[in-house]
Design a protein around this nucleic acid. Structure first.
Length: 728
DNA sequence: TTAGGGTTAG
C-alpha cells in the first residue's frame, strides 16, 4: 500500500507584500553558523565619475582575484569606502566569487547586502550551504527567499531537499514536499529524485518508495536513490529486488555509483556468490578500473573471507585510506589469516600510514588468534606510544589477546589499569580466567563486578558459565545459569551448551541429556558435541552414538565428530564399528583434520605436524623426542592406547602417539631455549589423553613449565601436574 | 542541479 504523501498545509508562499508564514516554526530555533557583521557606511549618493571608475577597478580586481584572501581584501575596501551599497551588481559579483571559493560565511553575509536577489542567486546560496553541510543555514536562506515572495524554481529544490535529508526528523522535508506539490514540480525528475533521497536519509522508506513508484520516468539516479535508501535502512533484500527490476527493465544502465550501492546490500547479507556476480557485471560494463568500485569490492571479498581476491584488488588501489587498510587487515584476522593480518599491519606502519583504533583492534585480534605473545607485546608497546593508549576498546582487546596468548598475568595487568571498567572489560577478564581453568577467580571477579555496580550481560554469563565448565564447578555453574533471568537475561543457545558441557563432563550424562530434552530451542551442534565429548570420556557408547547421529544430520562434513565417535568405539575395542566410521567418512568425503602445533621462538613461529620431518633441525628434534621417550618409559609411563583412531598394532600405536605434533613442538622448544624457559605451544585440535599425561610428566622430568593452548582452553603443565586438573 | 561505498572489543 502506498503511504500517504504528506498533507498539504496552508500555502507557505504568500502573495507579494503579505509577509509569508515561516517554513515551519521550529526552523527559527535551528542553530546558524555565526558570522560577524561588518559595520558599513550609510548608503552613498548616486555614483559620480570617480566612484564609477573605482567600481570598474573593483570589478576588474574581482575578476583577477586568485585567492580567497584577495577576495576578503577587496570586500573590506569596498565596505569601508561605502561603494558596495551603491552597486547591487558588484555585491552580486562579490557574492558569486565568495561562493566560488566556498567561503560560506562571507557569501551568506554578502547575500544580505543584495537588495532583491534573483532566483539564481538564492539558488547559489542554498546550494553552497547545502553542499557544505550547513543544512540549517540552507533552510534559513530558503525560508528567507519565500518570505520575500520569491517562488523557487526547479534548481532551488534539490539542494533544499538535500538539506532536509541532513536533519534527523522529516518535518522540514514534508513541508518542502508540500511546496513541490503546490508549485507543480511532480514531473521534474531532479526534484523527484531529491525527494526520494530526502525520505531515504530521514529513514522514511515507505515515503521514498511511494515517490519512486509514482515516477513515470526514472533515470539511474532515481534507481540508485531508492536502492541505496533501502540498503542503508536495513532492507538489503528489498534493495536487491529493486536492482533486479532495474536490470530487467533494460532502460537504464547502472553506473558505478549504482553498483556501489548494490554491493553494499550484498555486503550486509554477506552473500559473496551474488557479490561476485555483480563483480562480473562490473567487468562486463567496463567499470573494473573505477577506483570506488575496486575499494567496495575489496571490502566485500575481505569481509566474506575471499582474502586472496580481496588482496589482489587492494594492491590495485594506489593510496588506500585507513578504512580500506582496516577492511583488509580485519578481513585477514577474522578469516583465519592472522599472520597476513599482522604482516599487513607492519606494512601499513612501514608506509607511514596512521592506524586508527579499528586498525589496532584488528591487529590485536590477529595476535590473539596467532597466540603470539611476542607480537602481542610489540603491539601493546606500539599502542602505548600512540593516542590509543587509554582507549577502552583497545585495552579490552589487549585483555582478550593476552588471555588467548597464554598470559593471564599480563591480561590482569591491563585489566587493573583501566579506571572505569565497563561490562565488556569485566566480561573479557572473566572469560580469560575461565580459559585458563581458573574458575574460582572468574567467579570472584563476577562478584566484584556486581559490587562495582556493573550489571552483567549475556556475554558475561557465557564467560562465567564457561569458566565453571572448564573448572568442573558444577553446582556454581548450575546456580549462575538459573540466576540469569534475575538480571533480565534470557539464556541463549550458547548458555545451554555450556550447561550441557558442565553436567556431562562431570559425569552427569543422564541429567545432561534430560537438560537437552528440556531446552526451549532446537539443540545445535555445540550441545550434541558437548554430550559426545563426555561420552568419549566416560565410555558411554549408546548415548555417544545417539549424539553423533544428531550431529551428522546437522553438520555432515565436520571430520572431528566422526573421529570422536570412532574414538568411543576404539576405547571400547569395537574395531568393526571403528572401520564402519572410516567407511562413512570416506563416503561423505570428509578427512580427519591434521593436527598442527605452533611454537614461537625469538619472535618466529615454527609449525609442526604429526611425524613432521620438514624442519631444518628435524634430526636434533627427533633425537630429543627419543630421549624424552626413554625418560618417560624409565619413569614408568604407560601410553594410553585409546588415543589412536585406527586399529593398529601396539607398536605402531606407540609410535603414532609419541609423534603427535605437540610432542615435536615440545622437543623443538627444549633444544631451542635456555633451561628453565617456559614453553608455549598452540594446537589446532583438542589435546589427546596420551599427550596430556605425557606432557605432565615431561614438565617434571625436564623442569620446565609448558603452556599449551588447545582448541578449547589452556593447559599449564608444571611439576608433573596440569592446571586443568585433568578435567578438559 | 539529483544518487554511492568500505573498518568497529567479548
Amino acid at each position: 500500500m502506498a503511504p500517504a504523501v504528506p498533507a498539504l498545509r496552508r500555502p507557505l508562499i504568500s502573495v507579494p507584500r503579505t509577509p509569508p508564514p515561516p517554513l515551519v516554526p521550529p526552523l527559527q530555533n535551528l542553530r546558524r553558523h555565526p558570522f560577524s557583521r561588518i559595520p558599513h557606511e550609510e548608503p552613498c549618493d548616486p555614483p559620480n565619475s570617480s566612484a564609477t571608475l573605482l567600481l570598474r577597478r573593483a570589478a576588474a580586481l574581482l575578476n583577477s582575484a586568485a585567492q580567497p584572501s584577495h577576495l576578503s581584501q577587496i570586500h573590506a575596501i569596498l565596505l569601508s569606502s561605502g561603494l558596495l551599497r551603491c552597486s547591487p551588481s558588484l555585491s552580486a559579483k562579490l557574492f558569486l566569487s565568495a561562493a566560488d571559493f566556498g567561503l560560506i560565511h562571507q557569501a551568506h553575509h554578502l547575500l544580505d547586502e543584495i537588495p532583491s536577489p534573483s532566483v539564481p542567486l538564492w539558488n547559489v546560496a542554498i546550494r553552497l550551504h547545502s553542499r557544505h553541510g550547513a543544512f540549517a543555514d540552507a533552510l534559513h536562506i530558503y525560508d528567507k527567499m519565500l518570505r520575500q515572495g520569491v517562488v523557487p524554481d526547479g534548481l532551488s529544490l534539490p539542494p533544499v531537499l538535500k538539506a532536509c535529508g541532513g536533519l534527523p526528523a522529516p518535518t522540514f522535508g514534508r513541508a518542502v514536499h508540500a511546496h513541490i506539490l503546490r508549485w507543480g514540480f511532480e514531473t521534474d525528475l531532479f526534484v523527484q529524485n531529491g525527494l526520494i533521497a530526502m525520505y531515504a536519509k530521514c529513514r522514511q522508506i515507505p515515503c521514498a518508495r511511494a515517490v519512486f513508484d509514482r515516477l513515470s520516468d526514472r533515470n539511474v539516479v532515481s534507481w540508485t536513490s531508492i536502492i541505496s535508501g533501502c540498503a542503508q535502512n536495513g532492507f538489503p533484500l528489498e534493495a536487491l529486488q529493486i536492482f533486479a527490476r532495474m536490470l530487467s527493465s533494460s532502460v537504464v544502465r547502472p553506473d558505478f555509483i549504482a553498483l556501489v550501492s548494490v554491493l553494499k546490500a550484498y555486503m550486509d547479507i554477506e552473500d559473496l556468490d551474488q557479490g561476485s556476480s555483480v563483480h562480473g557485471l562490473v567487468i562486463k560494463l567496463g567499470l573494473d578500473d573505477e577506483p570506488d568500485l575496486i575499494i567496495t569490492l575489496t571490502a566485500i571479498y575481505a569481509k566474506c573471507g575471499q582474502v586472496h581476491t580481496a588482496r589482489s584488488l587492494f594492491n590495485r588501489v594506489p593510496s588506500p585510506d585507513v578504512i580500506l587498510w582496516n577492511a583488509m587487515i580485519s578481513g585477514y584476522a577474522k578469516n583465519g589469516h592472522a599472520s597476513e593480518a599482522v604482516e599487513l599491519f607492519r606494512e601499513m606502519i612501514a608506509r607511514h600510514m596512521k592506524p586508527d583504533s579499528v586498525t589496532i583492534r584488528s591487529a590485536i585480534l590477529a595476535c590473539a588468534q596467532l597466540g603470539s605473545l611476542d607480537v602481542g607485546k610489540w603491539i601493546e608497546d606500539y599502542t602505548g606510544h600512540s593516542h590509543f593508549k587509554d582507549d577502552i576498546f583497545v585495552k579490552t582487546s589487549l585483555i582478550d589477546m593476552y588471555a588467548k596468548c597464554g598470559s593471564i598475568a599480563y591480561a590482569h595487568r591491563v585489566f587493573e589499569c583501566i579506571p572505569n571498567k565497563d561490562v565488556v572489560v569485566w566480561s573479557a577478564i572473566i572469560m580469560g580466567y575461565g580459559l585458563h581453568g581458573r574458575g574460582r577467580e572468574a567467579i570472584r571477579l563476577f562478584e566484584e563486578m556486581k559490587c562495582a555496580r556493573v550489571g552483567p550481560n549475556d556475554v558475561t554469563f557465557v564467560g562465567l558459565l564457561s569458566a565453571c565448565k572448564h573448572a568442573g564447578l558444577v553446582d556454581e555453574g548450575w546456580k549462575y545459569f538459573h540466576s540469569m533471568r534475575d538480571y533480565g537475561i534470557e539464556p541463549r543457545h550458547q548458555h545451554y551448551a555450556c550447561v550441557v558441557d558442565l553436567l556431562a563432563r562431570a559425569g552427569h550424562l543422564e541429567k545432561a541429556y534430560e537438560f537437552v530434552r528440556s531446552m526451549p530451542m532446537e539443540p545445535e551442534v555445540t550441545v550434541w558435541g558437548a554430550l559426545l565429548n563426555a561420552c568419549k570420556i566416560y565410555g558411554h557408547v549408546g548415548l555417544g552414538q545417539y549424539a553423533a547421529e544428531q550431529i551428522f544430520a546437522l553438520e555432515p562434513s565436520n571430520a572431528g565428530h566422526y573421529v570422536q565417535l570412532s574414538n568411543i568405539y576404539a576405547s571400547a575395542g569395537m574395531w568393526s564399528d571403528v572401520a564402519r566410521v572410516r567407511v562413512l567418512m570416506k563416503e561423505k568425503g570428509v578427512s580427519k583434520a591434521i593436527g598442527c602445533s605452533l611454537t614461537e621462538i625469538d619472535g618466529k613461529l615454527h609449525s609442526f605436524r604429526a611425524g613432521d620431518k620438514s624442519h631444518p633441525r628435524y634430526k636434533e628434534i627427533f633425537e630429543k623426542l627419543a630421549e624424552l621417550e626413554r625418560k618417560l618409559k624409565k619413569s614408568g609411563f604407560v601410553p594410553h592406547m585409546g588415543s589412536v583412531l585406527h586399529d593398529l598394532s601396539m607398536e605402531e600405536k606407540e609410535e603414532s602417539l609419541c609423534n603427535h605434533s605437540e610432542r615435536i613442538a615440545i622437543a623443538f622448544g627444549l633444544i631451542s631455549t635456555a633451561p628453565g624457559t617456559t614453553l608455549r605451544i598452540m594446537k589446532n585440535l583438542r589435546a589427546c589423553v596420551n599427550c596430556h599425561s605425557a606432557t605432565k610428566l615431561i614438565s617434571k622430568l625436564v623442569e620446565r613449565e609448558i603452556v599449551i593452548r588447545d582448541i578449547n582452553r589452556f593447559h599449564h603443565f608444571k611439576d608433573g601436574l596440569c592446571s586443568c586438573g585433568d578435567y578438559w
